[in-house]
Design a protein around this nucleic acid. Sequence first.
DNA 1: TGTACATCAGTGAACGCGCGTTCACTGATGTAC
DNA 2: TGTACATCAGTGAACGCGCGTTCACTGATGTAC
Lengths: 212, 212
Amino acid sequence: MTAGGRRPRRRTYHHGDLRQELLRVAEEIILERGVDGFTLREAARRLGVSPAAPAHHFGDARGLLTEVAAEGFRELAQELTAADKSGGSDLTARLHAQGAAYVRFALKRPARFQLMFRHDKHDTANPEFKDVARQAYGVLENAIRAATRTAADESLTPDGYALLLAHWSIVHGFAHLVLGGEISAMKAGSDVTDEALLDSLLPQMLKHLRIP
Amino acid sequence: MTAGGRRPRRRTYHHGDLRQELLRVAEEIILERGVDGFTLREAARRLGVSPAAPAHHFGDARGLLTEVAAEGFRELAQELTAADKSGGSDLTARLHAQGAAYVRFALKRPARFQLMFRHDKHDTANPEFKDVARQAYGVLENAIRAATRTAADESLTPDGYALLLAHWSIVHGFAHLVLGGEISAMKAGSDVTDEALLDSLLPQMLKHLRIP
DNA sequence: TGTACATCAGTGAACGCGCGTTCACTGATGTAC
DNA sequence: TGTACATCAGTGAACGCGCGTTCACTGATGTAC
């Protein structure tokens, strides 16, 4: 048991891997206390390190959280890409697979997911962050381009753009409803597992999306 | 100008309308600083009242915020109902109108909207709150029942349920993307007005939703 | 291979801040007779 | 119509708390020669 108030003591003066460990516990804390519940002091406490130590690696909380969020976009882009490929040449299958991957990511990494869209917690000057976020977006855009026969050098048609947003909105909204507890509140009594949501409910929802 | 640091002084000992005014400034503060930026002291400060005064009416911050959220659900239910009626006997029109009303509400009252889904900020013991939230949900459910020919005493079919969630997810997700700044970030340069989002983009998106 | 020294990573005490809440209080209002 | 008194609404000083950040510091590491 690695209980809450514990302050592990190191034997060495240097931590060795403080930077990585800070990124890890940040996510842990957000999961337990929400994005706004994160504090640098708590992160330091959990690693048995002085409150001033994190500043050495990230400057401030915003810097640390931005890196957590960036890592989230990197992972999301990766999983969207893998899902996209799994759809083969079937354009509808590609979009459905991407949608499932999006929601699966949100459920697997709720802390990161919520942080990723909290721009007030990001360091807007970080160029890396913008880059990886755009990359994740690009995976969806490419599938929409294929579905609407739009070459990479053309701009999306208004309708293609509307389809892109409809798709993004539906999976983004569903992820938020699930994480917010709206779905389980609605079906009070019968407890819904993540598997049921992903394997049965979400595909049924996506079938209602009209894809050219 | 009712600037930030100002502390208006009353002439009377009793405020007269402190309860209502607290609900009003709560929304004002959330709009400026986010849901987590709200504090009882700041609310008291803005009304020129001692920090202990709010406790008299709401107990604590959770109590106050729950009432703001409840009022939001009341208003949302009202606007969804009005929109639903405007659709006449056309089932698709009813759902599209409800969708537009949902997003319009979110854009008109961003502070309330975001608070309404922050269950960690609500007093879960408040029965009124659950009631009005269920009522708003009921307006959507009724339209889905009509669209899927499901009587009030039957339970929704799996497909009807999937359609309900697809519709809710799409408008909920879109509202979050807009409020989170994702849409304007995407179309950087060309600034998008709320009117354009509501009158042109959203209807196009909803057209992609397949309704029986 | 050894040594001097710069740089890096972390310490821990201290600071000032704004917060929620408590407390004994007081001014205003409403009501019973 | 007047008065006594209970209740209600707000005061303002005080408390303890956890926070981010600063500071002079020190132990460990890496590098030039």
